[in-house]
Amino acid sequence: MKTFTDKMHTYGRIWTVTALAVLYAVPLVFSIYYNVFPQFSTLLKALAAVIPIYWATAIVEVITYTPLLGAGGAYLSFVTGNIANLKLPCAMNAMNSADVKATSEEGELISTIAIGTSAITTTVIIAVGVLAFAPVLPYITAEGSVIKPAFEYVVPALFGALLASYFAKHWRLTIAPIFAGVIAYIFAPKLPVGTMIFVTIVASLVAAGILFKVKYSKQFASEKE
């Protein structure tokens, strides 16, 4: 019998292939309608600059995010994007406030529902924003607007809040990755954050493994006594 997770993978595969078709339909329909296909050599030149970075990042992203997102959450997240700065934090927040573990089935379900909700909310906000506020929004985010700084600092606001909620539970685990990240930025201030995530996750996992070993062997020793 197929388990629920197996089914999710089957659905996910079907949806992802459909998503690819939908994605490619956009340039394809446009090109057919206006009868303008890009020149092969030009496209190749543009892609030569883009693909090595993007496709390498894609591999790193799939390896890094997939274990953290549940099955349903992974398929949904990679279609709608903005994983590190929105979908994953949103899922973490939902699992934290529902008090479920990411590794449990309950956690996986909560995370999928959170990511789905987040995807719909984002899509609706962007659509409404584009249709209703497009004429006004340039003024809000324009140079010199009073509230422009608010949106320039979404990243520290979001991750400060998340850090605080992790700090409460696992403060020991937060030190090494932040330290590693700061050091890396001192030497490479322009490093793209996608690459940095790889650095900090590795630092975080290694430090957590060491901490665990120390703690577990201590526990083991005290049990023996």
């Binding site: 953290l68 700065n85 520290p156 932040i178 900090t200 630092a203």
Partner: peptide, 14 residues
């Protein structure tokens, strides 16, 4: 699992 999540947060904090 928690460390992985924290790793992501840490990148943006850094």
């Amino acid at each position: 699992g928690a460390a992985g999540m924290i790793g992501i947060v840490a990148a943006f904090v850094a």
